[in-house]
Design a binder for these strands. Structure first.
Lengths: 258, 258
DNA sequence: CGACCTTTTGATTGGCGTCAAAATCTGTGG
DNA sequence: CCACAGATTTTGACGCCAATCAAAAGGTCG
């Protein structure tokens, strides 16, 4: 409930043509064939930390690829409690899922400044029709996302607070190293960690007070070091064990088509 | 942990050609055009209650559509605790998601006798390449599944035991009415309910003892009636409110392409 | 009818939530 | 560069929801 830092007005698009290669949607397109994808890119937008890209149940007609930064996908209950569904990093494809009225099934807020590249629904439809690799890619992307969501479901359903938080830390730490290598300092092993304890509580279904206690315990056990938006996992193997964390699922996403 | 009723040997395929129309995979194919789909159907299999179709981490090279019956998709933790990820009903498409070694990311067990129609990975690849509607359908199916999984995530993360169980009952009750109308008696409002309280506990992350207490409470409040594999929801509106249940998500799945 | 599930009920425990306040950190402006 | 307001994290005391342990009751099916 505390995440809405500053509910700025809806972000206006700025219409630069993207030049950055989308890792996700065009990830299976060979470099030499990537030229045609240019024609499909709609709008490039800069998002500021705290901005809401769209709210839950806002009617939308586009999806987008995250180029840089970190976004939080969440749902809110009637009582106002927020559940973080996913923490998105560069390359992730967002906003494709809707309800029957084409409303977003989750809200999206920027945890850091971010850049995105939008694709209108009609563009996506055209791409799927005209470019088989895009259709195949979309199938793989959606099904991979579903696998990860099931993993999170398992976390919440079966794991203790300690295990669940360990998973969350390992998951995001690992994905940052892969998807945002510029936020990872190889020397020190420290990553720039874009979320705070309150966010961790919204993702794990625990209270921030309890999250604090458990993080402190991890620190005392010398498993992690962390400070302001910084995280270092000192003992990755122990943390992985506690979390029942399977790095393969993140490092080597399955593909039916490539 | 108690779900593995009788771990029979792997189910052998019997190779009848399916005649039943798959609601899911071919759901967007117009009737007059459905003929060509016949050529793609691989194997038709009869599954007995309690059979495991494939185990978690079993290497598989096919997916299937459920024609009749009810299947349970689950993951098991190292300690042996089981989390039900999804309860599948006729029309659902299962087994498409894998890890990087093409192993199943969940186990599948039959909660009732069931019939399935298998599609080998190569058949699916061929269909996607040759038949645009199938590719589009697969995109929609995978993304719808992801939406539902996020809904369950929200349940486990934010809801009390009472709310979470109410959701589970409403969800399955509603889907049975839609996907298995023959199990719904319009007169009495009773559905044939394929799972027991132990399964509900595995799906909700609660203990069966606590599930029993809450179901008893619902019964005492005259919200439901239930007995051996039977369920009637007497007061659907109150149950929906308790559950924050949104029927639209189930009744009218969003499609980008149809 | 009898063995085996499944569900129910009771007593007790413990993990996590709640409430409250202090301590620490951060970013901003004078 | 320091001061200060606001956010974030930490700590303590206490309460409650759901887990655990145990056993009985009720149903189902061979």
């Amino acid at each position: 409930m505390t995440r809405l830092i500053a509910c700025n007005q809806p972000v206006q698009a700025n219409c630069d043509t993207c030049t950055v290669r989308s890792r996700a949607l065009f990830g299976n397109i060979e470099d030499k064939n990537v030229r045609w994808t240019q024609g499909y890119r709609d709008k490039h937008r800069h998002i500021k930390m705290g901005d809401v890209i769209f709210h839950e149940l806002e009617t939308i007609n586009y999806a987008f690829t995250l180029y840089s930064g970190c976004l939080i996908l969440y749902k809110t209950s009637i009582s106002g409690e927020m559940q973080i569904l996913r923490i998105a990093l560069p390359g992730d494809f967002i906003g494709f899922k809707r309800n029957s009225k084409s409303q977003a099934v989750y809200g999206v807020q920027a945890a850091t400044d971010a850049r995105i590249c939008c694709f209108s629904d009609t563009t996506i439809k055209t791409m799927v029709k005209e470019q088989l690799p895009i259709a195949q890619r979309l199938i793989d992307l959606q099904s991979h996302e579903s696998v990860l969501c099931q993993e999170y479901l398992f976390n919440l359903g079966q794991k203790s607070a300690k295990e669940s938080i360990a998973y969350l830390l390992m998951d995001l730490y690992t994905r940052i190293k892969i998807q945002t290598p510029e936020y990872f300092d190889k020397e020190s092993g420290i990553v720039h960690f874009p979320i705070n304890q309150d966010d961790i509580s919204s993702a794990s279904g625990l209270t921030k007070v309890h999250v604090s206690r458990i993080i402190t315990a991890f620190r005392n056990e010398k498993l992690i070091e962390c400070g302001h938006k910084k995280l270092k996992i000192i003992n990755e193997s122990t943390m992985s064990e506690i979390a029942e964390f399977n790095i393969d699922l993140i490092k080597n996403p399955f593909s039916h088509f490539s």
